[in-house]
Every structure is written in structure tokens, then in C-alpha cells.
Amino acid sequence: MNANEIHDRIKDHFPEGVVEFKSEAAVDPFIVVRPELIRDIASFISSDPDLKFDYLMSLSGMDFNDGNLGVVYHLFSMEKRHRIVLKAKLPKGEAQIPSVESIWKSANWHEREAFDLFGIVFQGHPDLRRILLPDDWEGHPLRKDYKAQEYYRGMKVPY
């Protein structure tokens, strides 16, 4: 299936869920979906016999720099050999989104990474801890408005 067909199939089942679709986006087409529906959509596209997205290639946090954070899902189907990109936008003050860990286990660590570096909270994640940075680090470095802390355990941070 190509991106247009995949979009139509998702739109049929979640008429409210799709916010935006860019088929002409430079290089990779993507679908913007409503964040609160992400787990339902994920569960649908992973089990639907025509879509069968069984492989979550990558899950990235994003700071869109317009007051929104976001999560980008790069999905692939091993069986159907097609791919799609899903995006969800979250307001910075309240960056929460349901976890898709129960559908794709690979999301477990990727969501922890997005939590660690962007401060996005994944609701229903079984073990949401920092993964790359120390547990007592302050702030989320990949946010565009991030300021490094002055000292970390007595060591000067900015160099």
C-alpha cells in the first residue's frame, strides 16, 4: 500500500483521529494524528490484515519550536513491505501521550529515551525512567529552550 491508501484506511476507522496528512511532504509522507487516540490507532494498524504494521522502526521525540512537543513514529510492515510515518503534537506544558509499549515492545526503550531527552510522559508505560542520562539530571536537553544546570554533583556543567 502507498501512503495515500494507508491514510484512507486509517481515516475510515478514525475519522476524528487524523488531523493532517502530507502526501507531498519533501521525501517522507506523514500523517498527523490526535495524540489521545494513538494507542487505538496503533492497535488497529498493527492488527488490520491490510496494514499489518508489525515493526516500529523508530520512535523519536521532537520539539517543533511552536509551543508543541511531538512524537514521531516510523512504522514498517515486514509482511506487506510498506511504511508510514505517524506524528502526534503535544502542548509543551502538558506533554502526555498514551504509550504504545503494549503493541510494539521496541517502544519501551524508545519512549524512555523521548521521556529522558524531551520530558514527554507516556501514560501506561510500565517503567518510565531516564535511560541515557543520570537519574538525578535536571531538565530535558533536547528541548529547544533547554538550559544546562550550573552544577551536577559539585561538577561545573557548562564549559
Binding site: A25, A26, D28, F30, M57, S58, S60, V72, H74, V85
Partner: peptide, 18 residues
């Protein structure tokens, strides 16, 4: 302006840059 997700087969598996 645009974005790309490019995958390749590294010795360890799917190495991709977004």
C-alpha cells in the same frame, strides 16, 4: 525544508538517521 528517514544495514542491523 523536509525530513527523511533513511535506513541502512550496518553490521549490527538497521541503522537509520531521521
Amino acid at each position: 525544508v523536509g525530513e527523511v528517514y533513511v535506513r541502512s544495514e550496518s553490521p549490527r542491523g538497521e541503522l537509520a538517521y531521521y
